[in-house]
Simulated assay, not measured.
Amino acid sequence: MPLTPLHFGVLAPVNYLFPGKVSLVSFTLVNAWIDMKFIEAALTGQPLPAHGDIHSLAGVLIVGTLVAMPGVRYAKWVIGAYLAALSHLLLDGLIHADMQPFGWIEGNPLRVMDMQTLSLILLPFMLWFIVQTVSSSYAWVRMRWAALPFRNHPPKP
């Protein structure tokens, strides 16, 4: 799944149950890093590479740790990084036969479905996430607009 928006569907129930506890920025950085080879191939027109070591438990934990380190003082940042790493491994593991998520187990024991089935399952969550993002962005803009100085003190005639 080369950085499909469907990876972000994971955040919908998490944001609902734990509002404001997960960093979208660290979540995005980890997902992009894990799929960097696929993004590069898609942009340059090259064939998609096989899922390598970065699509393993050790690989995603290393990426998650590297992204989490600069924001280690902020739990929200760290949670976003590790949630992205582990959910990315799980979602990709469900559909890609060429992955070997656990180095000590031959093959991919997580694979149980195809891309279309997983996409249909994740689509409602992705739409839910979009609604959450638009709604919270609108609330943020309204709050900032209300705090502007000219909104609280009308100009003198």
Rank of each mutant, 00 (worst) to 15 (best):
I95L: 04
P149I: 03
L83W: 04
L118H: 05
T4P: 07
I105H: 08
I79R: 14
F27G: 01
Y16Q: 13
M1Q: 06
P2C: 11
L127E: 00
K156V: 13
M115Y: 10
D92G: 00
F38R: 02
P13Y: 09
F27M: 08
Q100P: 02
L61G: 05
P109I: 10
T4I: 12
H96W: 12
R142N: 15
A41K: 07
A139K: 15
L148I: 05
I130R: 04
A75S: 05
Q116D: 15
L120T: 05
M115W: 08
I95W: 01
E106C: 00
V141Y: 15
L89N: 00
L127T: 02
L48K: 08
I54W: 13
G93F: 01
V60G: 03
L118Y: 09
L29R: 01
H153Q: 12
M36G: 00
R73N: 11
F102M: 02
V67Y: 10
P49R: 03
N15D: 10
L3A: 13
V25L: 12
G103K: 03
G80F: 11
V131A: 14
N108C: 08
A41T: 07
E40L: 13
A147N: 13
N152T: 13
L118G: 03
L6D: 07
T133W: 09
L110K: 01
P19L: 08
Y82T: 01
T4D: 11
